[in-house]
């Protein structure tokens, strides 16, 4: 059994995001880039499934500019068997990414496609659902637990929904998107970093995959959220009540 995992290169989650002065996007130059944390969780889950003997190969896929190879190397150092890089400098939206994945799935024929539930840069939370739709595969999104039955070819997925946990059974092949509490990703150890250097990364372009990148969204403006006003320290309960009544108008 083969598992394909999507890994996206994003601005590191610990970096303070800054909006470009011309409001066309956020500053990404000279900014630390890392693997999207939800993708790390997706990859970790695939590796755990492989380590439990239920899968034989994990293929990491990244789509984007040439530096995505660094993200793939991280994935390989964590333990993926090989990588696929679809190189594109165009701005990519979920539908284009989903179409690329459909083509890659046709080539690689994995039994399971695992993605992070969303990327922390655009927060779209669409790619997994779209690729499941395009492939006509069942989907288990926001997974907090995944149990595979290899013989029955069924994946049982606990989903974190607003009401609590929903459990769904998916016939393989299927798409799973991962939530934060699914697992804690491993670190890249030195021996594995060394091994990763000799693991293959296959290159494609969207043209080779016959996918036309269409900007189906237009970014009008990117702005920072309004700044929080500084608080004040009140000297007494009476003053607090007075302010709540007359300034905040909440009581």
């Amino acid at each position: 059994m083969k598992i394909m995992v999507a890994v996206k290169r994003v601005v590191d989650y610990a970096v303070k995001i800054r909006v470009k002065p011309d409001k066309t996007g956020v500053v990404t130059q000279n900014v630390k880039m890392s693997m999207n944390p939800f993708c790390e969780i997706a990859l970790e889950e695939a590796l755990r499934i492989r380590e439990s003997g239920l899968a034989s190969e994990v293929v990491a896929v990244s789509i984007g500019p040439s530096q995505c190879v660094d993200t793939l190397r991280t994935g390989l150092a964590m333990g993926a068997n090989r990588g696929i890089h679809v190189e594109s400098t165009a701005s990519l939206f979920p539908l284009s990414v989903a179409k690329i994945f459909r083509k890659l799935v046709e080539i690689e024929k994995p039994d399971l496609l695992i993605l992070g539930k969303q990327a922390i840069d655009d927060d779209c939370n669409q790619t997994g659902q779209m690729v499941a739709g395009l492939l006509n595969w069942p989907q288990g999104t926001f997974a907090s637990k995944v149990v595979l039955d290899k013989a029955k070819r069924v994946a049982t997925v606990d989903r974190e929904v607003d009401d609590g946990i929903e459990t769904v059974c998916l016939n393989l092949p299927a798409v799973i998107t991962t939530d934060l509490r699914l697992n804690q990703p491993r670190y890249a150890t030195l021996p594995n970093i060394m091994k990763a250097k000799s693991k293959p990364i296959q290159k494609f372009t969207p043209e080779e995959l016959n996918v036309e990148i269409i900007s189906d969204l237009e970014i009008v403006e990117v702005t920072e959220p309004p700044k929080r006003k500084a608080g004040v320290i009140v000297s007494s309960v009476d003053e607090l009540i007075h302010k709540l009544k007359n300034e905040a108008n909440v009581i």
């Binding site: 590191d12 610990a14 693997m35 670190y187 030195l190 021996p191």
Partner: peptide, 17 residues
């Protein structure tokens, strides 16, 4: 590692690590 000064190790892949 080859010179056996280090027995094992990890390299942070992101700021969180």
């Amino acid at each position: 590692m080859e010179n056996e000064l280090i027995s094992d190790g990890v390299l942070a892949q992101d700021i969180n690590q």
